[in-house]
């Protein structure tokens, strides 16, 4: 059901853990629908993401998208990190089953939430970043047949 890349990132998740005194922390999702992601960012004075860690409660796809999202933003600038969309995460993982697409949205949102937290802490505005939603449990569409 999952691609080899998804399985690899699930089995060997990159950047699991916490960052003490992180520059920004974002938590998205809710336990009700079974996915929570928390991303910790360590951002230096030049606005470069020096380190990133995550913790996730969720299915295989939730863990894999968190892991891939952290890989994609590590070492990048804030602006570059903002370009990491759910589509980019999915492509990097060689795709996700349709019912798991919301996991990649969650990963994108988690990065945005952490950046938003960083901006608030430092009282700055990040161009192109909107306040993340607290909960992105979007409605699943009924299958048609």
């Amino acid at each position: 059901m999952y691609s080899e890349k998804v399985m690899d990132h699930f089995k060997n998740p990159r950047n699991v853990g916490e960052i003490e005194n992180a520059s920004g922390v974002g938590t998205v999702g809710n336990a009700k629908c079974g996915d929570i992601m928390r991303i910790f960012l360590d951002i230096d004075d030049n606005g470069v993401i020096q380190d990133v860690k995550f913790k996730t409660f969720g299915c295989g796809a939730a863990v894999a998208t968190s892991s891939m999202a952290t890989e994609l933003v590590k070492g990048r600038t804030i602006q570059e990190a903002l370009q990491v969309t759910n589509k980019a995460v999915m492509e990097a993982l060689d795709g996700l089953p349709p019912v798991k697409v919301h996991c990649s949205l969650l990963a994108e949102e988690a990065i945005h939430a952490a950046l938003w937290d960083y901006a608030e802490k430092n009282n700055i505005k990040i161009e192109g970043l909107e306040k993340p939603k607290d909960d992105i449990s979007e409605e699943e569409e009924e299958e048609e047949y």
């Binding site: 699930f10 409660f57 299915c59 295989g60 796809a61």
Partner: peptide
């Protein structure tokens, strides 16, 4: 802990089980 993650990791050890998780 979420059930599907648990199932996949059990499967990696050769154990077949099931879960009532949403996933």
């Amino acid at each position: 802990v979420e059930g599907e993650s648990l199932l996949i990791m059990l499967d990696m050890k050769g154990i077949c089980a099931s879960s009532g998780s949403a996933c």
